[in-house]
Design a protein around this nucleic acid. Structure first.
Lengths: 164, 164
DNA sequence: TTCGGTGCAAACTCTTTGCACGACG
DNA sequence: CGTCGTGCAAAGAGTTTGCACCGAA
């Protein structure tokens, strides 16, 4: 038996500042190390991303940022997402649609996805046995894993009932 | 210990007709059931895809088809790929580049991917324990799996040695 | 003051689509 | 023969980029 726990970030509205601070600091460090600048726009993007624990698409982020004091152009959003990817604070996903999905990464809390192909709902989960097994497989091939992505597509419990 | 076996289709040049026939028949059936026509172009696309056991991108397929007697336009390639996806003979993958990758599906031989982020090489593998564990996880969530995709990104044995 | 950053709009890439002609069933 | 399919070229969608001005360090 495997101990699988959902890691889904469900409906929050509080201010997870204590959570998001270390991430912004990581980004600041990264920028400093690369001789890059911490601009108002970059700060806005990072704050917006880490103020919510879900997945998002580039366009959605552009929209969300319209609520900010600092205006951030679409180009800057894409450019910043690329930087965040470089310093591994953000990952690019693919759920089968044409647009890219992103999600922020918490180094310690990796998770995989169950994606409902009917209602589009995404369930996150984490399973240690699965992680272990994957490491073992990589070992067999002398493959040095950097990261992985497991997406299981199908019908969630609600939708499965409606199919008959 | 898990029995993991590579399923990589490495360097073939023979004529796998006996293998590809049943697939074309499946497609013919599908077309017939839907009241669709089996055109020269569709046949060319299917033959080309199943004459090789690798992954391919749409553009690459367009190129490969230029060697055929029958000319097939880019539009038709995309349209046929969509049909092949509908009848589950082809799957669309995403290896992190902007273009889509496709691969043909053999219902009985599912596999996952190790993708080298340095040289781009893709290793296919299959591991029963992994499959079992995933089914178990789905069960925990009352999730009804249709298909899944596991991609492990990192460095292949060759590239890992060159890093130091 | 000095580079790197930003916004804008145009460019790009991959994919989809409207239309008139062509060919499978 | 009647549709469905095809090729073409143009349109879309998402993302990237060149350039001149702007601002963090």
């Amino acid at each position: 038996m495997s101990e699988t726990k959902p890691t889904q970030a469900s409906g929050e509205s509080g201010s997870p500042d204590s959570e998001s601070m270390p991430r912004e600091e990581q980004f600041v460090d990264f920028l400093a190390r690369q001789g890059l600048k911490l601009t108002r726009q970059r700060r806005a993007v990072v704050n917006e991303i880490f103020s919510d624990a879900g997945h998002f698409e580039a366009e959605e982020l552009v929209e969300r940022l319209k609520g900010h004091r600092t205006r951030v152009s679409r180009a800057t959003v894409y450019r910043t997402l690329e930087l965040l990817r470089e310093c591994r604070l953000v990952e690019k996903l693919d759920f089968g649609t044409q647009r890219s999905y992103y999600e922020h990464v918490s180094p310690s809390e990796h998770h995989d996805h169950l994606i409902c192909i009917r209602c589009g709902n995404v369930i996150e989960f984490h399973n240690e046995a699965l992680e272990t097994l994957q490491k073992e497989i990589c070992g067999n091939f002398g493959f040095q894993e950097s990261y992985h992505s497991l997406r299981i597509f199908g019908h969630c419990s609600k939708c499965a009932q409606t199919i008959h």
